[in-house]
Amino acid sequence: MRHSSGPACRAWAAHRVRPLNALVAQFLRDWRIALRSRHEMTTPLMFFAVVVMLFPLAISPEPEQLAAIAPGVIWVLALLASLLSLEGLFKRDFSDGSLEQMVLSAEPLFLAVVGKLLAHWCAASLPLVIFAPIAALALSLPLEALSTLLASLLLGTPTVACLGAVGAALTVSLGRGGMLLALIVMPLYIPVLIFGTSATSFAVAGLSVAGPLAWLAVLAGLSLTLAPFAVSAAIRMACEE
């Protein structure tokens, strides 16, 4: 009974009262770090913008041709830009030891991982989603397809972040895992890419977009519930070394 006032017990009690404590704390911590190091947020965005500019130069400035490839270009670039930001998702925390603290802490690792993923999505994917309509207009995507493009990105990028986080956690202890990360996660991204681009293309063609968007929502739900387990397991492995 002498433990009743110990720190572990208090943490346990706090955890009982607010089970999402770890999640919120981790989210706020990562979000603040992301705001402080703004270049990590803006570099993928600028990468996205500069590569979008290459397509009219490489293919053709004809609006019809550009509009035909616009959904695919934007989605592929969103995947590539997410790889850029994912590589650093766990790197700093791994090298300064805070990832290990996360594993050792009394709070469930699963919740901390969810908080981390949410912060990453807000810092890395959300700016991209907001910028995408500008890129879409530059690529002559018809205005009526814009809302679908936005919806597909909003529903698709959580899955991208979750799957990418699994790859990032698996490669975090390796020196230069960038190329390897791409090789591991790109095949897993394919369903998101297919449903995301088809939704946008359907909208351009005036077809119903409910099917692919519903699939994106299902995939987001699945990956949000399953991926944190895989990420936690991979983080544990990385910290055990």
């Binding site: 699994v166 897993l188 895989a230 492995m237």
Partner: peptide, 9 residues
């Protein structure tokens, strides 16, 4: 772990 993630996907 990667094999299991792949199998689910």
């Amino acid at each position: 772990l990667l094999a299991v993630v792949g199998l689910i996907n």
